Simulated assay, not measured.
Amino acid sequence: MKFLTAFLILMSPIFGAWSQTDFPNKPITLVVATPAGGATDKTVRLLAKQLQLKWKNGVVVENRVGASGNIASAYVAKANPDGYTLLVSAGPFGINPSLFKTLPFDTKKDFVPVAQISSFASVLLVHESFPARSLNDFIAVAKNPKDPLAYASAGSGTAQHLGVELLKSKLKLNLNHIPYKGGAPAMNDLLAGHVKVMLAGMGDASPHLNSGRVFPLVTTGKTRSALLPNIPTLQELGILDFDASGWCGLHAPAGTPAELINKINQDVMAALADPAVRQGMAAMDVEPRPTTVPEFRQFMDSQFVKWKEAVEFSGAKAD
């Protein structure tokens, strides 16, 4: 009996290695914190379809919406660290540790980065009645010390809110934040002219760009948007160190074996190179972002630092 026990202990690394080369042998669940049909959800489903061809055993996209993404994060934090339950992380994942006083998990300790999937620009929109058609004109209006310029966002502490606050700090603007309960009601009031300014993700803005009711002033990406080729980026206009682009990626529960993390990362990078995936993302003005695990970890570290500063400057509180 002692001999058998010793043999099993000695052989366990071999058995473990064999089981990991067999990964995955059942469906993998990708937990999304945003509603079905949004830009992040559509991007993940494109990726999942391609990963299905590689993994064979099925990929389930599960939407767990609420609490600024914390419901989905809490669910994955408690999942078995076996590679079969992954969080589709996005902007709020990097913001929430600074925005919420307490969370039911430790963002930095309870998760490990796996791979970045995508990034997408935001666009600064103004209502058609707003007296500016360039960033310089907008700045002139927004610096009026006697009349704060109101802007809408999807809610306090969202990336759109904090992105404008970063711009406000950098350019010394006089702005007044009007938070809404989500991007849709904020966009509706912008279209109706009840509020004149909003920073919106390209996916949310794209259905309205040809409506004539809003005008895009500038985008936040490193290159011009394919949907708005005539609209400059902030970097083109000399605002070089500003980045409020959206993103999504994959995180796994802490304790997931490094071998599995690396395998999933490599499979995601291969899927992002597929022409059908890239074409589908391009149609939404979403850019594939294949990264190594260390690169994604470095990106996340920069997100935590940037949004901590923005939360402190703005005084943002969780809704």
Rank of each mutant, 00 (worst) to 15 (best):
M11V: 14
A254T: 08
D106C: 06
S19P: 04
I9V: 15
A154T: 05
Y180C: 07
P232S: 14
G249W: 04
A254P: 02
P290Y: 07
Q50L: 06
A258D: 14
T223G: 04
Y75G: 05
N57C: 09
S156E: 13
N176D: 14
D41H: 11
L190K: 01
Y180P: 04
H208Q: 13
P27V: 11
L237K: 06
P253K: 04
I14H: 02
N210M: 06
W55A: 03
L99S: 01
A273Y: 00
D204W: 03
G16R: 09
P81Q: 11
K143C: 11
D82F: 10
L46R: 07
E62Y: 11
A140M: 05
D267Q: 15
L228P: 03
K78C: 05
Y84K: 01
L240A: 14
G249T: 06
G16S: 15
F215T: 13
L166D: 00
R133S: 13
F138T: 02
T40D: 14
I239Q: 02
L8T: 15
A154R: 00
D267C: 04
V114D: 02
Q279C: 02
I264H: 07
L190D: 01
F138G: 03
G38W: 02
I264S: 05
G16P: 01
D110T: 03
A318H: 01
H161I: 02
K172S: 15
S169W: 08
Q52N: 14
F7N: 11
E295I: 11
N70Y: 04
